[in-house]
Simulated scan of single mutants.
Amino acid sequence: MKSPDLFKLISDFFVKHLGSEKNVSKHTSLAYRDGIKLLLKFASKEYNCPVRELRIGQFTQPFIVSFISYLENDRGNTIRTQNARLAMVHTFFEYIMIENPSLADQCQRILRIPQKRQIRKSLGYLSADEIKKILDEIDRLNTLGRRDYLLIALIYDTGARVQEVLDLKPCDFRFDSPAHVRILGKGRKERLCPLLPETLRLVIKYIEEYDRSISDSKPLFQGKGREKLSRHGVRYILKKYVKKAGKQMP
């Protein structure tokens, strides 16, 4: 029996499984894309052949174990990242096993590779006073400062993940009482978060300053070129103000 084409399997996995059947978010799809790219590049190097010549039969249990070791030893990935990549591999081969039962033994062996155990550290938190000191360091006399102020205020007020706040659009806010914002979380699960009056005023002023409509469906937070602000951009912003505030804190 002819072995299924590797790249047809990958294409169907993204289009049919992740896209049509699971309807995963764009962020999740990109994470799978990056993981598959990394896996293919590693396979090309291990088997000393171009990516286009790779075959599904080469992706054995020992090979996947070597891939995880490569993530740890060569790339310096944390256990959390290694487990995330392995979960991606498991999802891919579970799909292959269902679609191509002839590969069941190969897939089952890969699915039996266990994730690594890790010690979960307690999450720290900032007090209201510490948040205030960080916000006080932001220069609200300029446009970017007002954007940064609202960004941090929303993260604190809603308790949302950074990516969830970056995905917010003006149309996600309800300005009538009771004011709230609709947040789309992991697994495309929606939740409504009430907003403090001061945060609501900041949102309204921000939307007006950029001459945008409350029905606008484009990202609320944008960079200098009006492109969507990235998580890396937020990390830089937070580090900058935390560093400034740290000089004022005992």
Results as ranks from 00 to 15, higher is better:
177 S>F: 12
239 K>H: 15
167 D>P: 15
156 Y>I: 10
218 K>N: 13
194 P>N: 02
68 I>M: 02
177 S>R: 15
229 L>I: 00
98 I>V: 10
64 I>K: 03
45 K>D: 13
156 Y>G: 12
24 V>P: 08
203 V>T: 07
59 F>T: 02
71 L>T: 11
61 Q>V: 07
235 R>S: 13
119 I>Y: 07
233 G>T: 10
33 R>W: 11
133 K>T: 14
60 T>L: 03
73 N>I: 02
157 D>V: 06
138 I>L: 10
141 L>K: 15
111 L>S: 03
106 Q>V: 04
116 K>I: 04
58 Q>R: 05
134 I>R: 05
122 S>P: 10
181 V>M: 11
110 I>C: 01
8 K>E: 11
116 K>P: 02
143 T>M: 10
193 C>V: 08
50 P>Q: 04
173 F>P: 10
160 A>F: 11
104 A>T: 03
80 R>P: 04
137 E>S: 09
173 F>A: 01
141 L>Q: 15
101 P>D: 05
36 I>N: 12
57 G>I: 03
201 R>I: 08
195 L>P: 06
115 Q>F: 10
216 D>T: 14
107 C>N: 01
12 D>W: 04
47 Y>C: 04
231 R>C: 00
213 S>Q: 13
47 Y>P: 08
145 G>H: 04
133 K>M: 12
49 C>D: 01
146 R>K: 04
245 A>N: 14
219 P>S: 12
